[in-house]
Design a protein around this nucleic acid. Structure first.
Lengths: 249, 249
DNA sequence: CGTTGATTTGAGTAAGATCAAGTCGGGTGG
DNA sequence: CCACCCGACTTGATCTTACTCAAATCAACG
């Protein structure tokens, strides 16, 4: 296990995410404001904890690179993953507002996070109402993701759930600028997928194999490619509205 | 089916919820501001739709009285309830921010809602930063509820899920001032509970019967009483941190 | 080359779904 | 008042999806 720490902040002016077409442009002064509130870069090694379950809030973070997930565990070890976090996603808002993190956050890959000063949220609300609204937008968007996942876990069959997860992650990875040719990076183990969908790892494995044999997905070398998006969506019964521009902190 | 409509607003100054001990006190001017933005009272009859799935946002509402629920349906009729809404809960924030309601809302009982003017959210952010923060708090709190529910649907057994739902609803109803003696109103049908927990109605029925026979809950005359909260929590493996004061719009 | 984590396969089992009746209570119309 | 209807709840029987346990394979790594 390698070290985790807090480095000098990566300069927002050279942010690799912000220029992407899926992110909202900022107004004058807003970028400078965000940059000023950024206190450093946190690095967490794959498999390590970013935020411990039930811990008081440390910082609000934006995920700059790498994948992570939010989860809850039960005393006997059962675990439910609420959502995966990709570059551009914010984390720690709940913990900040509700005083304590109602869930843990763990890094799937090595991860780099932009850390914001402790009073950032409140200062955003006082100084930049439009950024504050963006923050609420991000909270609402986060809930939308969980709502979608809830439909999978509660009502979709294993086949449909896995298919829906693949479509959703593919689109999100694409919008984070991770798509190359017809594939995106895919660092999730089958155990993680199982914990996100409320399935056992064994059953998840068999389900993925079926999707593969149907030629709907290809997973190899840590990358995910979708053969026929239309068909996969049909299997999943999953249609989302086209994503609007999203804010980035 | 009786009529639904929009009546003159119930005066915020005489709000029956706000004085309750679980709600946050407001600063000077905030109540007046809220009252000014309130455009009317919407009444929806039990079983009717408050917000249609996929519809553009109409208003942001606060639930004044009655119970409702947020849900998604699949083309073949399978339905997942994301969360129940009790007096004091806000609804329509997601639809307002994300342009379209990602889920439907239906009334369980007859329901009365405080409707706010279309530009309310933005004006809150410009004029009353502290209220804006409250709005985000409510969004974050809403997501916490869904996260909890997700653990039930994904990882808890039927027994645990039902128990957890009962505990959660009992506490929420209590904090909305609905508790009388050792019971709260309980208008949910077993079908609704099933749709919230991702179970079949039949299995939900048998599970509730078991809880009853164990003496952990009593449900009669549309009310829910919990025999031994401690034991029920143990069965559910459900412990929440004591609720902090929550904002009310 | 042994270890470790991820994936795969097989066999047996159980939680929960589905199908089919039947009960109970509260309306509604005759 | 009574017959009927409807929705919610209940019960029994059967079936299936997905879980559990156990072991094998495979690749990466030190």
């Amino acid at each position: 296990m390698r070290r985790s720490g807090l480095d000098p902040p990566f300069p927002c002016e050279r942010c690799p995410l912000r220029p992407l077409p899926s992110f909202k442009r900022l107004q004058d002064g807003e970028l400078a404001f965000i940059a000023r509130r950024k206190v450093g870069q946190k690095h967490v090694v794959a498999g390590d904890t970013v935020v411990a379950e039930g811990e008081a809030a440390a910082h609000v973070f934006t995920l700059l690179s790498g994948w992570a997930f939010r989860f809850k565990t039960m005393s006997d070890g059962r675990r439910q993953i609420m959502s995966f976090l990709l570059p551009g996603d914010i984390l720690g808002l709940q913990a900040e507002l509700l005083d304590v993190a109602p869930h843990g956050v763990e890094a799937v890959t090595d991860v780099s996070l932009c850390a914001f000063a402790r009073d950032t949220v409140w200062s955003v609300y006082r100084v930049h109402p439009s950024l504050a609204l963006d923050l609420t937008w991000l909270a609402a968007h986060g809930e939308r993701l969980v709502d979608d996942a809830m439909l999978s876990v509660g009502r979709r069959t294993a086949m449909e759930s896995v298919a829906a997860l693949f479509v959703s992650l593919f689109k999100r990875a694409e919008s984070a600028g991770l798509r190359v040719e017809d594939s995106v990076p895919f660092p999730l183990t089958q155990t993680l997928i199982a914990d996100a969908l409320g399935l056992s790892a064994v059953h998840t494995n068999r389900t993925i194999q079926r999707l593969r044999r149907m030629g709907l997905v290809r997973i190899a070398d840590g990358r995910l490619a979708i053969g026929d998006l239309r068909s996969l969506r049909r299997v999943a019964q999953y249609w989302d509205q086209p994503a609007p521009l999203r804010p980035l902190f």
